[in-house]
Deep mutational scan, measured.
Amino acid sequence: VTLFVALYDYEARTEDDLSFHKGEKFQILNSSEGDWWEARSLTTGETGYIPSNYVAPV
């Protein structure tokens, strides 16, 4: 499993987005949709879409 870490804070803009804080780690569930990836936060357990340019591989 490839994990990603948040480089910046992000505040959700829609109900499908996932808010997160810098340093939070994610498991990517689906990265085939372009710039927005479906991810699960390893901190909160919540699932939603995150901007791929806000995260980097651990």
Rank of each mutant, 00 (worst) to 15 (best):
A12R: 09
E46G: 09
L18D: 00
T47A: 08
L29K: 05
E33A: 15
S52R: 11
L7N: 03
N30Y: 07
E38Y: 14
T43S: 13
T43L: 15
D16K: 14
G23C: 04
E38K: 10
E38A: 08
V58D: 12
T14F: 15
E15H: 11
D35A: 10
P51Y: 07
E15K: 15
S32K: 15
Q27D: 08
V55D: 01
V5W: 06
F20W: 01
S32C: 06
V1S: 11
F4R: 03
D9V: 03
P51Q: 06
G48P: 00
Q27F: 14
T2V: 13
V1M: 14
S41Y: 03
P51F: 06
N53V: 11
E38P: 05
E38W: 14
P57W: 06
S52W: 09
G34R: 13
N30V: 08
T47L: 08
A6T: 02
R13C: 07
L29D: 05
T43H: 10
L3D: 06
S52G: 08
Y49Q: 10
W37C: 02
V58L: 12
I50H: 00
N30P: 05
W36P: 06
R40K: 14
S31L: 10
S31V: 13
L3R: 04
V58W: 15
N53M: 11
P57K: 09
F20G: 00
F26G: 00
L3W: 10
E46H: 12
G34L: 12
E46Y: 11
H21K: 14
E46R: 14
G23L: 03
F26C: 01
W37N: 01
H21S: 15
D17G: 14
W37Y: 09
Y54W: 08
Y54D: 02
K25Q: 11
S32F: 09
N53R: 12
G45I: 02
G23P: 00
V1H: 14
E33P: 11
G45T: 04
D16Q: 12
L18W: 04
Y54E: 01
P51C: 07
R40E: 09
E33M: 14
L42K: 04
W36S: 07
H21I: 14
E24Q: 07
Y49G: 04
L42W: 09
Y54I: 06
S19C: 04
D9K: 05
H21W: 11
E33V: 13
R13T: 12
S19H: 05
Y10R: 04
T14P: 03
F20E: 00
V1R: 11
F20L: 05
T47E: 09
V55P: 01
V5S: 04
E11P: 05
R13L: 11
F20D: 00
Y54N: 03
D16G: 15
Y10S: 02
L7M: 09
G45H: 07
T2W: 14
I50C: 01
V55A: 03
V55G: 01
Q27M: 11
A56T: 13
T47C: 07
L18S: 01
L29R: 05
E33R: 12
S31F: 15
K25E: 09
I50D: 01
G34W: 11
V1T: 12
R40F: 13
D16H: 14
S31C: 06
G48M: 03
D17K: 14
I28P: 03
S31M: 13
P51L: 09
W37H: 03
T44S: 14
I28E: 01
S52Y: 09
W36G: 03
S52L: 05
V58A: 10
E15V: 12
